[in-house]
Structures are given as structure tokens and as C-alpha cells.
Computed example of a mutant assay.
Amino acid sequence: MDSEKDDQKQTITEIIKSGQLHSIYFNEFGIGVSKHDIFILLRRNGKEEAILNASHITAKSLVSSLGEALRRFETQTNQTIPDSDEIEKLMEEQDDDNNL
């Protein structure tokens, strides 16, 4: 299984380096769900960039794979990555402290 993941990682690296595909950066997203699919609207600085449309099974597999990749990254770097809700809460607390 590790060999399969290594091969997949190598293939992804080769595709990225090839420059043959468009790259999409996003820092915001919205999610919609229908009885058939999941829709993920990708935004960069408030501007719509792309829509991902996936089956429920593929979306759930993506969530699982992303979660595992981030857990490995956090373990390797010994750092916990905050999500946007945590960052917003910290910023609100900082604002409250500054207004005292």
C-alpha cells in the first residue's frame, strides 16, 4: 500500500511540474449538496474562481484523504493548523483585549 501511495505522490509531483494543467488557488469556499452531487464553489479573495462538482462518494473520500494529509503534516511539523473559525475567534478575542 505504501508503494501505491509513493507512486501516486510521484505522479502528482510530475503533473505539477509539467505545467500542463491550470492551477487554481483559493482561500474561501462554499458548499452545496443535492441528492446527486456535492458542489464546492472556490473563491480567491471573494472572487469566484471555479466550481468542483463531485459525487457524494468522491467528496467523502476527498475529505478523508485531505484530513489524513493534514494530520501527517501537523505530526511531521509538530504544529496544529487552525481553521478559519478558530482564527476568527482569536482575532475577535484580540480585538476585545485591545478595546479594554
Rank of each mutant, 00 (worst) to 15 (best):
M1K: 00
M1R: 09
M1C: 10
D2C: 12
D2W: 06
E4F: 13
K5P: 00
K5N: 02
K5C: 04
D6S: 07
D6V: 11
Q10W: 08
T11S: 13
T11Y: 14
T11L: 15
T11G: 04
I12R: 08
T13D: 05
T13S: 09
T13Y: 02
E14M: 09
E14S: 09
I15D: 02
I15H: 12
K17V: 01
K17T: 01
K17F: 06
S18D: 00
S18F: 01
G19L: 13
Q20N: 11
Q20V: 04
Q20D: 07
Q20L: 08
Q20Y: 06
H22D: 06
H22G: 06
H22P: 01
S23A: 10
F26P: 00
F26S: 01
F26C: 06
N27K: 03
N27R: 02
N27W: 03
N27P: 03
N27Q: 05
F29L: 10
F29S: 11
G30T: 03
G30Q: 11
I31S: 13
I31R: 13
I31D: 03
I31V: 15
G32S: 13
G32I: 08
V33I: 15
V33K: 10
S34H: 08
K35R: 15
H36A: 06
H36G: 10
H36L: 08
H36F: 08
D37N: 12
D37Q: 07
D37E: 09
I38R: 04
F39V: 10
I40Y: 01
L42D: 04
L42T: 10
L42I: 02
R43P: 06
R44E: 10
R44W: 15
G46R: 00
G46M: 08
G46P: 01
K47S: 09
K47R: 14
E48F: 08
E48Q: 11
A50N: 10
A50E: 11
I51F: 09
L52N: 01
N53A: 12
N53S: 13
S55T: 09
H56K: 06
I57Q: 04
I57Y: 03
I57W: 06
T58D: 11
A59E: 00
K60F: 04
L62M: 10
L62D: 04
V63E: 01
L66C: 14
E68A: 13
L70P: 00
R71W: 01
F73L: 08
F73A: 10
F73Q: 02
F73H: 10
E74Q: 08
Q76N: 11
Q76I: 07
T77Q: 07
N78W: 06
I81Q: 03
P82E: 00
P82R: 05
D83C: 07
S84Q: 15
D85C: 12
D85H: 14
E86Q: 04
I87C: 13
I87A: 08
E88W: 06
E88I: 09
K89F: 10
K89M: 09
L90K: 14
M91H: 13
M91Q: 07
E92V: 07
E92C: 04
Q94Y: 02
D96H: 14
D97R: 14
D97E: 11
D97A: 00
N98M: 15
N98S: 14
N98F: 11
L100A: 05
